[in-house]
């Protein structure tokens, strides 16, 4: 119960749409997990996977196994958001790193 509360709170904070959805199914959770996974692969190939992304993803998988699809979907979407942020960071750094070079 407490976990559900936390997950709802999390989803309200991060993505209000999720909270409204309310009717997460196995299919919707699996879809969110797959989509997070794709993004995480890109982040990893940029050598910029965040620990929080992996944590959220693991939580999503664990919830999915237990049949807590709402939590699974919220966590997976959180992982995807974090992966997106790290991908954007890596992209920007492809140029910006040069500013830090010691001259």
């Amino acid at each position: 119960m407490k976990r559900l509360g936390a997950a709802v709170l999390l989803s309200v904070m991060i993505c209000p749409v999720v909270a409204l959805a309310g009717s997460a199914t196995k299919a919707s959770a699996d879809h969110a997990i797959a989509s997070a996974q794709t993004k995480m692969k890109i982040a990893a190939s940029n050598q910029d996977q965040w620990i929080a992304t992996v944590d959220a993803f693991k939580a999503a998988k664990a919830a999915e196994q237990k049949g807590d699809f709402a939590i699974a979907e919220a966590e997976a979407k959180h992982a995807a958001t974090l992966a997106d942020l790290s991908i954007a960071q890596a992209k920007a750094q492809k140029k910006l790193w040069q500013n830090e070079i010691v001259h």
Binding site: M13, I14, W50, A52, T81, L82, L85, Q89
Partner: peptide, 9 residues
């Protein structure tokens, strides 16, 4: 904030 280490609250 941007990197979601902390929430706005």
């Amino acid at each position: 904030g941007k990197n979601q280490v902390l929430t706005p609250k």
